Amino acid sequence: MTIRTTRTTVSFANPFVLQGLEGTQPAGEYVVVTDDEQIEGLSRIAYRRVATLLQPPARSAPQLLIQF
């Protein structure tokens, strides 16, 4: 099983709410990490998405908790 990981930075101009994340998320730059696994047994290379993670920006130095 081959896993392909992609990291992308996205920018939000306004605060937003996502189900599963606590509270309103601030505007700013977020890192999106996606994991895709290769589908074996096909005549060409194909992948399926198995995970997508949104990493919020750090709010303060003492805060060590990161939500994914």
Score class of each variant (00 low, 15 high):
residue 7 R to C: 08
residue 42 L to W: 08
residue 17 V to M: 12
residue 35 D to K: 11
residue 1 M to Q: 10
residue 33 V to A: 05
residue 43 S to W: 10
residue 42 L to M: 07
residue 66 I to H: 04
residue 49 R to S: 08
residue 39 I to T: 14
residue 16 F to A: 06
residue 34 T to K: 11
residue 33 V to C: 01
residue 53 L to P: 01
residue 14 N to P: 06
residue 32 V to L: 09
residue 10 V to D: 03
residue 49 R to T: 04
residue 24 T to K: 11
residue 51 A to P: 01
residue 4 R to W: 11
residue 10 V to L: 10
residue 48 R to P: 02
residue 61 A to W: 11
residue 57 P to A: 03
residue 52 T to K: 12
residue 49 R to W: 04
residue 29 E to T: 14
residue 25 Q to N: 11
residue 12 F to D: 03
residue 52 T to S: 13
residue 6 T to D: 14
residue 68 F to A: 06
residue 39 I to G: 11
residue 14 N to A: 10
residue 49 R to L: 11
residue 8 T to M: 06
residue 52 T to H: 04
residue 5 T to C: 04
residue 15 P to Q: 13
residue 38 Q to S: 08
residue 60 S to W: 01
residue 37 E to P: 03
residue 62 P to M: 11
residue 21 L to I: 02
residue 11 S to L: 05
residue 47 Y to E: 11
residue 56 P to H: 03
residue 55 Q to T: 12
residue 5 T to E: 14
residue 11 S to F: 13
residue 45 I to L: 13
residue 55 Q to F: 12
residue 50 V to W: 04
residue 21 L to H: 02
residue 22 E to T: 12
residue 44 R to I: 14
residue 65 L to M: 08
residue 54 L to H: 01
residue 18 L to M: 14
residue 24 T to G: 12
residue 65 L to G: 01
residue 33 V to M: 05
residue 44 R to T: 15
residue 20 G to K: 02
residue 67 Q to G: 05
residue 34 T to V: 05
residue 23 G to K: 06
residue 13 A to F: 01
residue 8 T to C: 09
residue 56 P to I: 00
residue 16 F to R: 04
residue 20 G to E: 07
residue 28 G to I: 01
residue 64 L to T: 10
residue 54 L to S: 00
residue 2 T to P: 06
residue 6 T to N: 15
residue 11 S to Y: 10
residue 40 E to A: 05
residue 17 V to D: 13
residue 24 T to M: 05
residue 28 G to W: 02
residue 11 S to W: 08
residue 15 P to A: 12
residue 5 T to H: 06
residue 42 L to E: 07
residue 25 Q to L: 14
residue 40 E to W: 04
residue 33 V to S: 09
residue 32 V to N: 04
residue 38 Q to R: 14
residue 30 Y to H: 02
residue 8 T to K: 12
residue 17 V to F: 06
residue 12 F to W: 04
residue 46 A to M: 06
residue 64 L to F: 02
residue 39 I to A: 13
residue 28 G to H: 00
residue 63 Q to N: 01
residue 32 V to K: 03
residue 62 P to V: 14
residue 8 T to S: 14
residue 57 P to V: 00
residue 12 F to R: 08
residue 13 A to D: 15
